[in-house]
Simulated scan of single mutants.
Amino acid sequence: MVQAIVQVVPFGVGLAVAAAPMVVLALLLATSRPPRVGVAFAAGWVLGIVLAASVVVLVADLVPGGPPRTVTSVVRVLAGAALCWLAVRSWRSRATKGTPRWMAGVGEWTAGRALAVGLGLGALNPKNLVLVVAAAGAVVESTDRPAEQAAAVLVLGLLGGLGVGAPVVVRAVGGPAADRALASAGAWMTAHATALTAVVLLVIGVLLLVSGVTELV
């Protein structure tokens, strides 16, 4: 179990940091809506990551004898290439202004709406999917025991939700007095989120590429 958890830690941290644009949304929810709305979004985000990773692990487990090592190496190469491409795309769009359509009306979101958006973004966001697939491959390689796989997937989800969940915790602990700190954090994240995401994706992408190519050679 320990080995499987260790394998997913870098991907979980990557999910947490690469989710910088989602942290901006979490900050907006924390300062503009009741606490339960922010909690619902964070819960949906974590649940989305866990569900996506669980599906990939279950599909991989259906392969008799597990996926061949060559297949997992190719997956790493493809995931690394995809992350590098997403990093370049994010970097080029760092100066783009405007609010994404899925953030529209955030000041009026209900807990149900926040949960649904968090779930969808956590499970279907392209950056998440690439990292989740790579992490799930590492889990399947590490262990074939369902309980250990489930524990590793849960750790992946919790780590991936650190950034999105932080504003919720700060607001819960600090109450309205924390609004100024959250507003400052929101302004900084809005200015730097895209560039930060690009750098993190590039680093993880290069590491996956090198790892996959090394295993194939």
Rank of each mutant, 00 (worst) to 15 (best):
V106Q: 12
L83E: 05
D61E: 14
G157Q: 01
A181G: 12
V164C: 02
A111K: 08
L86Q: 15
G186D: 06
R89T: 14
A178N: 02
P126G: 06
V164L: 04
G80N: 08
G65R: 01
T96V: 13
A104Q: 10
G65T: 09
G163Y: 03
G80M: 06
V50S: 07
V71M: 11
R76P: 02
D144W: 00
T99K: 02
A183I: 13
P146Y: 08
S54C: 12
L78E: 01
D144E: 10
G112E: 04
A185P: 05
W102H: 11
R113Q: 13
V74Q: 12
M103F: 09
A134Q: 01
G65N: 05
G137W: 01
T70V: 14
D61R: 14
S93M: 02
V133F: 11
V77W: 02
P146C: 07
A82M: 03
S54R: 00
R92L: 10
A185E: 07
R180C: 12
P126M: 07
A123Y: 05
T110Q: 03
P68M: 09
V74N: 14
A151D: 00
G186R: 15
G163M: 10
V55I: 14
V155M: 02
A172W: 15
T96C: 00
V133W: 13
Q149T: 14
L159M: 11
A172P: 00
R101V: 11
A135I: 11
L154T: 09
D179N: 12
A134V: 02
P146T: 11
